[in-house]
Amino acid sequence: MTDLESKLTAEIANLLDDKKVDVFIAFKKAESPLHPQPAFFTESNQLGDFVYNSLCQNNLAAFIPRYPLSARIGMVVRGCENRAVNHLVVEKQHARENIFMIGVPCEGLVDWHKLVNRFGEEMIAVDEAKDEIMISYRDRQIRAPRQELLHDSCLRCVHPNPLSADVTIGELKPEGDPTLARTEVAAFSALDNAARHAWFRKEAERCIRCYACREACPMCYCTECFVDHGVPRWTESTVSPAGMRAWHIVRAFHQAGRCVSCGACERACPMDIKMTYLTEKLNEDMRTKYQFECGMDDKTQPPFAAFNLDDKNRFEL
């Protein structure tokens, strides 16, 4: 157990023993070291399995809308999870006073796709130091620099620090560089229409419609998704070109002004489909057109909900 993990365990145990939270959402060990599993702790004696490292890839804020508003929830939050919680509070999915957040400045998540592509699947343990990842096999250990294994959305992360956590453990990290964060989507936008469309088709056609991206996303909390509607059938729900493209377009567009750039959708995808080139474009537009960045506080409404007559001259007539 790392130093951070023991500090967190002590903190969580206190919260559960003092009955300050009803449930604490965190991670526990699973069979594969690559995929720690979301866990819901209600008693402090369950915390033996608790784990917190760079492979905890889910955005646990996704579970918040499933609880009633009165449930008191505890969470360990990184920068992106904190922003997701903030935005869920804006959308009235939970009450801020019923969420207790333990903030941890984030070093960036290790992308398991990258790890497996490079080192195979036979590893028995993955440990980490500040800048290094140690991968242990039965007979040997390999070290690799963390920077090379970070998930793409963590490489361009701008706000790694929790913004409004109740307690913060660990040293704050320097903010990311916003210009660097935008280079990727700017490069994509600079391509011509045909090239952009070809890229989109290539990504979308690998989709198997498992909806893991939807389940992983903290903002996809609709009780009935448009693809699950039978009557009216909004779009083809089979693995057809029309259906797959419609899914990718509309899933991304529903995140306009609501995406916190955590990248949980991409990490959840079993087909390694890139999706953030869509949502980052929308985030970029929301920044430039409406000066809005999602989750920076728990009051500001997103642009599509905050229209008013000042918009009068915004668009062509």
Binding site: R196, F200, D285, K289, F304
Partner: peptide, 21 residues
């Protein structure tokens, strides 16, 4: 104010469709 919301959304959707070709 039905058209105000529509202007923001649909204009953005047109830009977004442009983004994918």
């Amino acid at each position: 104010e039905g058209n105000l919301g529509a202007r923001r959304q649909l204009d953005q959707f047109a830009d977004f469709l442009d983004h994918i070709g």
